[in-house]
Design a binder for these strands. Structure first.
Lengths: 147, 147
DNA sequence: CCTAATGTCTCTAGTACCTATAGCTTCAAG
DNA sequence: CTTGAAGCTATAGGTACTAGAGACATTAGG
């Protein structure tokens, strides 16, 4: 049985966050010790680890709630979970693509910045350019994003 | 001169967000038309594009404020902007690495899930495993993250 | 056994970054 | 000239935490 602090360390989640998850019903109300402190078993630890990893994946808490409800009621079809995971996978892929483009932009910024002063540093210009519009937002008509 | 809606379309930013940026001082208070509507020039559009792209890069608004202040006072050293960008670059790289690992995990989840019911679907188990701990949180001592 | 330090408790409030609503005014197209 | 979209202000709500205050619990050292 783990106290909340140990659980937090074990799962990589801050203590107030655990209590928050309990409050919003993502974690069940745990056992309490004689002194009213929360006590968690391995099952709770798995559940929290699941939440933490799903958050890392970019799942919003509502999607996590769905996933957990699937696990809590195993009669339901896996297809539902599959749909959620598939959706999330494409979101993750899109995020990777965007971040990769932005990484290139940052690297270029840094290179261009070199050692000058702002006067000859193009950090701001580079970032206000719409060179990434292809993947990003819908500004192609009004700005110089077109090829 | 653009109205706020046109500006929003041009920069890929929602109208209330533009007003919010003005409210928190990221955008200067713009000119107004006879009928009290905001009017933006190309400079404002660049500034907003800069903000939008920096947000895409994952810069928090405070960092963006710093960057903008650098651009507003060009005497200062570019090195400061460089430091911010460099910091952000490593954050971006870390995020890409994490997301790539998580993408693999999601793909495996989906493959494993196939067409079964939750009973033989390991979505939850896979996500509660600590297989990604190497890059992630600090649970190596308390969980089975060790090699 | 006692004390000091650390951990945990509840509760409230604050943060970041928006997003939505209500109720009004202004503008542009037919 | 009218009507419907777009703009205005102001306030409230949303997500996902995070921090602080003040009280009780637990644990390690002397």
């Amino acid at each position: 049985m783990l106290t909340i602090g140990k659980l937090g360390i074990a799962a990589g989640v801050k203590v107030p966050t655990i209590r928050y998850y309990e409050q919003i019903g993502l974690l069940p109300t745990p056992e309490r010790s004689a002194g009213n402190q929360r006590l968690y078993d391995a099952k709770a630890q798995h559940r929290l680890a699941f939440i933490r990893h799903a958050r890392d994946l970019g799942f919003p808490l509502e999607a996590i709630r769905d996933l957990l409800s699937l696990s809590d009621t195993p009669e339901q079809s896996c297809a539902v979970a599959d749909v959620i995971a598939t959706e999330q996978l494409s979101a993750v892929k899109a995020r990777i693509a965007r971040l990769t483009a932005l990484q290139a932009e940052l690297e270029r910024m840094i290179t261009q910045c070199a050692q000058g002063t702002i006067a000859d540093c193009r950090v701001i210009e580079v970032l206000s350019d719409h060179e990434l519009c292809g993947e990003g937002h819908g500004a192609r008509t009004a700005t110089r994003c077109a090829p």
